[in-house]
Design a binder for these strands. Sequence first.
DNA 1: ACCACAGTGGACCGGGCGGTCCAGAAAACC
DNA 2: GGTTTTCTGGACCGCCCGGTCCACTGTGGT
Lengths: 193, 193
Amino acid sequence: MALTAKGRATRQRIIEGAAAYLRSDDPAGVTLDDIRAITGTSKGQIFHYFPDGKEELFLAVARYEAGRVLDDQQPHLGALTTWSAWERWRDAVIARYHAQGRNCPLGALMSQVGSTPGAAEVVTSLLNRWQFHVKEGIEEMQDTGLVRPDVNADRVAAAFIAGIQGGVQVLRSTGSIAHLEASLDTLIDHLRS
Amino acid sequence: MALTAKGRATRQRIIEGAAAYLRSDDPAGVTLDDIRAITGTSKGQIFHYFPDGKEELFLAVARYEAGRVLDDQQPHLGALTTWSAWERWRDAVIARYHAQGRNCPLGALMSQVGSTPGAAEVVTSLLNRWQFHVKEGIEEMQDTGLVRPDVNADRVAAAFIAGIQGGVQVLRSTGSIAHLEASLDTLIDHLRS
DNA sequence: ACCACAGTGGACCGGGCGGTCCAGAAAACC
DNA sequence: GGTTTTCTGGACCGCCCGGTCCACTGTGGT
């Protein structure tokens, strides 16, 4: 499939329109017709740009959203070298999910696309990169003596990832961001001790 | 709707059959016909016992599964009074989810039933009870001097809940139980410090 | 100017699935 | 034993929605 400039623009419009829709509406039951209407396109176009249909489109949207997740945490996530950087990162994460409220675009995608290999790969890759940055941050703090050297950086980084995921899930279910805050604060406390 | 003994038995058979099916199969796309086939019943019976159809049935299954979640952690969860009790609890949680693998019945239900008020209530109630037990455990440890008194018991309990939820979610996505272990171990370490 | 191919619109199809309906079997009640 | 209520089976309906198809319209290259 060779794409012209116009084609690329349309394809992108579909992805971004679908992402915006997912970010603002009920996760359950997002239909191709919805996306068609939102993006001002037609069935023909959707299947022209995503020949494998719904799954391929949703995977593209998932990849797009996965990129945004880490971007929204920059530049803090990439330079966790001081305690104040950790605090700013904490605030950025909370602000992001607070703004998003109970609509987690990635979560919505995942519950739709189910457990296809492609979906698993997107999530795994995102979590790996995320955890890597946190681990790097902890190790740098250890290098400068701000965190005790006997802390297992990778294990605590994994705890951070789990805590954030769980906090977001609780936010989605109950609407309360307290668990996300508690998780981040407790783990940062742990590093400080 | 007045139920005879036979009726109650059939109703229960439907719930338990559906729960077993959910526990062992692809979350996405569980259909009433599947449940009908598994439980050896008929459409008429399903709508006889669950007049509001799919949503009512799935909510009943969710309530049933929510009960099991805490039961599977007993008696450890109810008596977190020594470090070895915490270790046994940790092991019970990990064993439970290790056995369950990537099939989280409650998670599957939630992604199907979406974000109806009833579903939110089931999850909220489960998480509250769960967190309460953990908080009680921390406070008892503080009373006996095993945990420092300046630890915010409720906040750390919330971090536990978030960490467990996130760990399970990572398990569902990636198949790795490492995050659940890391989360529990790190938080218990934190209490010990 | 022409042609090949990308882009676009929308009618149409077919299966899946939640839900309805009713008729007959089985209990329960008097 | 008769009548009323509950229980059971399964045929049937209708919509929703993913996917197909094809005709038409740009657009870019030579």
